[in-house]
Design a protein around this nucleic acid. Structure first.
Lengths: 208, 208
DNA sequence: TCTTGTGAATAGGTTCACAGCA
DNA sequence: TGCTGTGAACCTATTCACAAGA
């Protein structure tokens, strides 16, 4: 398989989700363009990188395309090769994110929640196993957790991030307001509401 | 002022936050590079686009630089020109996001929460005014709300997005799992945990 | 000697424009 | 005629490499 550039991969992933929301059987690059706001040429190029040659002259087959993207980009939802993740910090936000149902059908499985407050993890009822932050390192390793969702107070964010990185975590979804410093091979996505809103001001409403 | 490219703006915004977390008075591009993982040249180029000529040979003045970024990129936190935003959908997640304190010191002000459930908006206690979704259009216009945080159930996401767009909303922070179709001049940031996690798989751990 | 700022080179992604297939 | 797939051109951002200031 050819090497697909990261921006194309990201768009393809969005396309896959978009296709799941579609009822029709066939769809053209023009329609996808209208739905996403991206140029038609960009969409055709992205899809052609998959080397399917499936959509010749008649538009793409919605299901075939969706499945092909998931398979080629390796975001299958087969339980055997799911990526395991956890939530660190069970405040209001962390608790709200602790919904196992949202992970259903995804390439991820939520296998743990962590909080420093012993009482909380005993009292809280959840389908997901909860642990004390004290056992973070032990549990991350034993449960083979690869990704973490960070929802601790801002001032503890960098400290917890360091601990996660030390355990070999591959990526952090950062809901805190703190900018995290991590080694280059660890992915961080800063999705704090205020941060994301501020980022919107920086873009001159060109593309998404 | 020269036109600053969007990627540089985004990095500068992150730098500004990073500088706020710093105690020292001076900082060099090498140190910023270590903190962010970006190339030193990239950082120097970004900063030079601000045309400050402030850091000559001795590193940058942390406070001067931070303030300059905020001013030039227009993300000031002066209450008079704050951007007003609202949260749509007050389920567990929406409720957790309804913390006015997280907006303190930002360029944004949370002025409303919406939910279809009349009981909920009466019973819920919050510092932020709560309204019925029925009054969405009326309130968005009267309160001059420019940005929305979307936390409704997936199946209502596109519908609510359409209503928000019809009111002239400028940007949507999308916590749902649904891919939204909006006009090109409306910004959407898809921050649903599973979506963000999946996006991480697409990036070959190059840059952030 | 350390650091910034920046022309010039390079790398990378997007868009054009059209050949080719149904 | 309506669509895809793709070389080639274009455009944008990053990186190099070095001059100049402290």
């Amino acid at each position: 398989m050819k090497n697909i550039p990261a921006p194309s991969k990201k768009r393809l992933l969005t396309l896959a989700r978009l296709l799941s929301q579609q009822e029709k059987a066939k769809i053209t690059s023009i329609e996808l363009s209208a739905l996403t706001g991206w140029g038609e040429a960009t969409i055709r190029r992205d899809i052609s990188l998959l080397e399917l040659h499936n959509g010749v002259s008649n538009g793409y087959d919605v299901h075939v395309l969706r499945d092909a993207i998931c398979e080629i980009l390796q975001v299958s939802s087969v339980s055997s090769d799911k990526h395991r993740c956890c939530i660190v910090g069970l405040g209001k936000l962390g608790e709200a994110l602790l919904e196992s149902s949202v992970f259903a059908g995804s390439a991820f499985e939520l296998v743990a929640g962590f909080d420093t407050n012993f009482n909380k993890i005993e009292i809280m009822k959840s389908e997901i196993p909860l642990f004390a932050t004290l056992d973070l390192e032990k549990k991350i390793r034993s449960l083979k957790i690869e990704y973490a969702v960070l929802a601790v107070p801002d001032e503890k964010a960098q400290f917890m991030s360091d601990r996660l990185v030390a355990c070999g975590i591959k990526g952090i979804v950062n809901y805190t307001n703190t900018v995290l410093s991590v080694p280059k091979d660890v992915r961080v996505e800063h999705v704090n509401t205020v941060v994301v809103l501020t980022g919107m001001l920086a873009v001159s409403s060109l593309q998404k």
